[in-house]
Design a protein around this nucleic acid. Structure first.
Lengths: 169, 169
DNA sequence: ATCTCAGTCGTTATAATATAACTAAAGGCG
DNA sequence: CGCCTTTAGTTATATTATAACGACTGAGAT
């Protein structure tokens, strides 16, 4: 990286994000992939966001640290993070969230990749679940018609528990 | 519509598409909604396409009939057709397909709207299924965490039966 | 019969999302 | 060091989608 693109400001990530970034770095080490500074910043920005982060939102924030950042800067980092399974893309929102299984859970890192997303139309929050009943239903419905499933996008929009409570008051 | 935007050329739709358009027109009548000429053309173009049609692909074709067509022309028609349930949007592809249940099936028009889509990465074709096991799994997984599902996007990418055969030869 | 209103459409401009293509620097490794 | 692969900078552009405003249409109300 050019020395002119200084990244010397302290990054403002919360302790939780910092811990997750450490896990991500460790994970990348095991895969012989490199969590570079830009990639780490992009992942950190996604993890800090309460809602899925759009590429240009990320770009705006990233520019606080790297004045030269441009769309390809962000999209390349996103491509890397997606390839490593460290983030997910929410198709309905054209936005990105951290992968709960890679980063949050205690199962180690070998979790499957058959996640489903529950998107709250009240607060915009997205939670990731991994429900085997859904996965099995998809596999079996596919087999019924001779289709060989490889990868699926499951996005369920509705109202989360806390927004339901808020509404009913 | 301005008389200058003539739509007098014969439309080239196949007999199958014409029959589906008739169904669509009848369906709209029951809902007191208007399947205008532009909307009918857009739906026809989608139905003629073997693969999901992108908005700008539709626009290119539409211009054969309406020289003035612009992006809003197409997006407005798409919004209408989506609202009527006559088409679906495939999120992963930013593209649109006809709704098999509204137009193809013999159940009448009262079908549910919990469709799933199987996208073949070989040939690009998309088939729509309505599998109750998947729907139930989604409902039950949502309830488990207090989430109230309203609408879901289920897109499964893989290899369709005929592409599997083609590959194995 | 015409008024009026909701719905539809034409038109222009622009927003939002994403990638192509080329150059150069950085880092691993002999 | 010298070579090669990966990563990043930079500019330009492609692709998808919407905002905003004025005008036309058709159906019911007066």
């Amino acid at each position: 990286m050019l020395s002119s693109t200084a990244t010397t400001e302290l990054d403002p990530f919360s302790p939780r994000t910092l811990a997750l970034l450490d896990r991500a770095a460790a994970f990348c080490t095991t895969r012989a992939s490199r969590l570079t500074e830009t990639r780490r910043l992009v992942l950190g920005l996604i993890l800090e966001s309460r809602k899925p982060a759009g590429a240009y939102d990320i770009l705006d924030h990233l520019r606080q640290y790297q004045r030269n950042a441009a769309p390809p800067t962000v999209y390349r980092a996103l491509d890397f993070l997606l390839a490593q399974g460290l983030i997910h893309r929410i198709e309905r929102m054209s936005a990105f969230i951290g992968c709960a299984h890679r980063l949050d859970c205690h199962h180690g890192n070998g979790c499957g990749h058959r996640a489903q997303f529950l998107i709250c139309s009240g607060c915009g929050a997205v939670s990731e679940v991994e429900d085997s009943e859904i996965s099995h239903a998809i596999t079996s419905a596919s087999r019924k018609i001779g289709f060989k499933p490889q990868q699926s996008t499951i996005e369920i929009e509705g109202i989360c528990a806390s927004c339901q409570q808020a509404d009913s008051t």
